[in-house]
Amino acid sequence: MAAGATSMFRDFLRRLLKNRLAVAGAVVVSFLFVVAAYPSAFARHDPSRIDVRKILEPPSADHPLGTDELGRDVLSRMVHGARISMEVGFVATGIATAIGLVVGLIAGFYGRWVDGVLMRFVDIMLCFPSFFLILAVIAFLGPSIINIMAVIGLTSWMGAARLVRAETLSLKERDFVSAARAQGAGNLRIIFRHILPNALAPILVWATLGVAGAILVESSLSFLGIGVQPPTPSWGNILTAGKDNIEFAWWLSVYPGLAILVTVLGYYLLGEGIQDAADPRLKGR
């Protein structure tokens, strides 16, 4: 059994590594992890150190990505901003995935009215234009990084719930579930020991894409000034300053913009790579 799992994983890894785009995505994501984990290795300056004698300086040896409207080093702010983006992305997606898993498993496994009620609730949640829902809630609760993570998480779990439910519906009819039941396993044991591990692959793909989505939402909120609050740097609020000075301080818009683009693209490529590699129907490709 253990050997089988390992060979399956090896298979999966081999297929993933063959996909060059997925590898590129993985490299980007890993690099971001390193940056977020050791920001001081990449940033020479304190990201919130203001220097009014160096306002809006173009990229130079000392400030490779220039300085912002208060003379702070843009590279340092981007590096520390990467950490914020990753944190928000992972925590928010973690919350969404957890809720989605529970709701999906319960709805799929118990079926009948439980399924009906939960899925209608999912439908209702999907009806709200989620970005405006987030805007409204943040405006009400006040912007803070905790609130942002929670609100993004609480408004983005519906896709995961649907995915897990569909998976559960098919898994619960499978022989190994019947076998477990015949051995006297209870519902909870079946759900968490037998169905959940088998539903993890699609949810992993979903979560990878979800991180990208959450990073985008965080950047948008910060850009609008109701996300991460100053002086904490975030790609979104660096972009806000970029917008005001776009005519002559291009580095304030270009670099955070590129960072967001590359990060989101990295997650998408990796996510799609995992999806393809994990799909047995594509094995021969």
């Binding site: 919130s48 203001i50 208060l70 000034g225 002086p231």
Partner: peptide, 23 residues
């Protein structure tokens, strides 16, 4: 005013006062 707040924040941090900014 936002920029003023950021500078005040740094000035005050230097003497041991923590100031949060809310707009």
């Amino acid at each position: 005013r936002a920029k003023t707040a950021a500078i005040l924040q740094q000035n005050l941090a230097a003497v041991g006062v923590r100031m949060e900014i809310r707009t």
